[in-house]
Write a protein that binds this DNA or RNA. Sequence first.
DNA 1: ATAAGGTATGAACCAGGATTCATATCTTCA
DNA 2: TGAAGATATGAATCCTGGTTCATACCTTAT
Lengths: 207, 207
Amino acid sequence: MAYRQTENTAKRLAEKRARILKAARELVADGGWSAAQVDSVAERAGVATGTVYRHWAAKAELCAEIVATVSAREVGIVKAVADADGSPLEKLEAAIRTFASRALRGRRLAYALIAEPVDPEVEMVRLDYRARLAHCLERILREGIMRGTFPRLDPAVAAACIVGAFMEALVGPLAPSKGTGARADRHLIDQITAFCLRASVGGEGKA
Amino acid sequence: MAYRQTENTAKRLAEKRARILKAARELVADGGWSAAQVDSVAERAGVATGTVYRHWAAKAELCAEIVATVSAREVGIVKAVADADGSPLEKLEAAIRTFASRALRGRRLAYALIAEPVDPEVEMVRLDYRARLAHCLERILREGIMRGTFPRLDPAVAAACIVGAFMEALVGPLAPSKGTGARADRHLIDQITAFCLRASVGGEGKA
DNA sequence: ATAAGGTATGAACCAGGATTCATATCTTCA
DNA sequence: TGAAGATATGAATCCTGGTTCATACCTTAT
């Protein structure tokens, strides 16, 4: 035997992988999925086209990983909110506000992750994203129902409704080309939050 | 001159066009967009591939027309509800219930229209669909706000939220392969409706 | 009946982007 | 240093569906 992958090599490999992933994410983040062609990704990452296939068996897997990575981050943040102390009401509000304001910051990427057409394999990861998000909210809702803060609603359905509500209300303003200001963003976030809280609380929401 | 399109010919043309459109719609309705390849559509309609291009300049236009047609029907129904007599609250409830139950009937088609990936050009028509739907709801909300039934919410945002809420809550159960029963459907519709009403009314909703 | 001009056909063509793979380069280790 | 094994390269290839177009067929009006 005259070669055995050394630790260093492994590290270099990993770095290259990360570089490619990052390049792809950046391309998506400012040109949407269609900007992330394998050739462009490779070029931006400074590697040859074929190299990409040394790390992912197919482009769809690379894309799926992007969605998974980014969404894991977002879900993590929302989850942290859900796990923090505070009343269910406060947590619900914080979760929604946090998600919405982050989405409005990284508009193009958020749009790609939330609404832009992708191929089915990637779509599945996206659905999973929503499901995870909904799951976080569902936990908050359950807690609130037990404590009597929220009425007897089906927490699974309500959670899905909340996710849908803020994503849909966000999509328009997120859409590439639709420019908006900080003022409008704030208003939007307030309205979305208020809507979801009213829906969950059933009255005592801040209207 | 030895030929001028006669009334009869025009009618035949129109019929053929309709046949193609119908074939395409049916294919989408049970296999989703990917089942509606030009060749398959043509075959099902009993015409040659090229004939399709005599009626639409590109496939995307055909697809767009399908979305436009079907969604116009749905929007029409919701609009009728919005225009009927009744309190804003009743109308809002009726609109949501109607939409949801119809979607659950034509599951595959509804899924294709609501959630399945399509190419950008068609996507625009889909967004338009949602916008129209939102518009109907917005009118109801405005009326309710004026009458004091609903709190001071931004009707545009709230309408988007409602559309998003019910579509998202519907998508899971609509997804091809996910089988569900009439009982579950009813429960889902009730929950979605209750959610949206609470969000709009802010208290006196039926919980 | 037939010329003139629509309409239909479907096999061939094409575009665009994902994949491959023979070749070159780089790493390790005796 | 050099053989053996890994990795990287990127031009060539493949694939999938949409689109075209030369040809054949139908209608109409004389």
